[in-house]
Design a protein around this nucleic acid. Structure first.
Lengths: 113, 113
DNA sequence: CTGAATCCTGCAAGATACTG
DNA sequence: CAGTATCTTGCAGGATTCAG
C-alpha cells in the first residue's frame, strides 16, 4: 500500500498536500492512531504527518481525540465532511486507473524525444 | 472568472499545478490561443502559463498546434484524455460547492481560537 | 504574438534531535 | 506513544528582461 515506487505522481489530481489523500484513505475504515498511520505511509516523518493532520483538522475533514494515558493514545477519524469526500475521491481514482496507460504512454512518448 | 479574491484555495482538491485546473476549464469550450488564455487567468505570467501548458502537454491532456505566421499563432486544445478529465472534475466542483459553507465554517472556527 | 532565459523568493517536505 | 523544535533543501511560482 502506497509503495513509494508506485508513480502515483502521474495522476494529475491531488487532494490537499502530498499526504492528505493517502491519510484520508487510511482513515476510511475507521479511526486510527498516530503510529498506526505511520505504518502504511512508508517514510513519512512524525513532523510531516502531524502537519498534514493539522491541516486536515483545520479544513474540518478530520477529528482528533485524545484518550488519557499513559500510555497516551490519540485517535484520528474522519468527520462527516471528510467522509463525504470519499465519493468524489473514488471517482478520481477510477479515472486514474482507467487512463493509467494513456498517462504512461504520454510520459514515455515524451522521454523518447 | 477566476477572480484572485475568490479563496478557491479552500478546496482541498487540486488538478495538476496551481493553474492547470483553470486552464483545462478555459479550454473546455474549444481551443484557445496563448494570449486568449492569459485574459481569464488574471495575473498569470507568460512563463508560468508556458510551464503549466508544457506540463499538461507532457501528461497528454493538451495539444499544441502552431499556425504559421506572422503573426504567429499557437492554439491549445484538450485531447480526448483531457476532455475525459472534465467529468470527474465536475464532480469535484460539485462537491466543493456543496460543502463550501462547511469548509468556511471550519476555517472560521479555527481563526476564532 | 509567443515564448525563452535569468534571477529571486517563499514554502513544502525531509533529516535529526529532543520532550512530556 | 505522540508529538515539538530546529535546520536544511528542493522546487514551484513570480518578476523582469530579451528574442524570433
Amino acid at each position: 500500500m502506497f509503495d513509494p515506487v508506485c508513480p502515483s505522481g502521474l495522476s494529475p489530481i491531488r487532494v490537499g498536500d502530498k499526504w492528505a489523500g493517502m491519510i484520508i484513505r487510511c482513515l476510511e475504515q475507521g479511526p486510527r492512531r498516530f503510529s498506526e498511520l505511520r505504518v502504511p505511509l512508508r517514510g513519512i516523518t512524525a513532523k510531516v504527518l502531524t502537519q498534514s493532520l493539522r491541516g486536515l483538522e483545520r479544513s474540518g475533514l478530520v477529528v482528533r481525540t485524545v484518550h488519557a494515558g499513559p500510555p497516551r493514545q490519540v485517535e484520528y477519524g474522519l468527520t462527516p465532511l471528510g467522509r463525504s469526500l470519499l465519493e468524489p475521491m473514488a471517482a478520481l481514482c477510477a479515472w486514474t486507473e482507467e487512463h493509467w496507460d494513456e498517462l504512461l504512454d504520454a510520459r514515455e512518448a515524451e522521454t523518447a524525444i
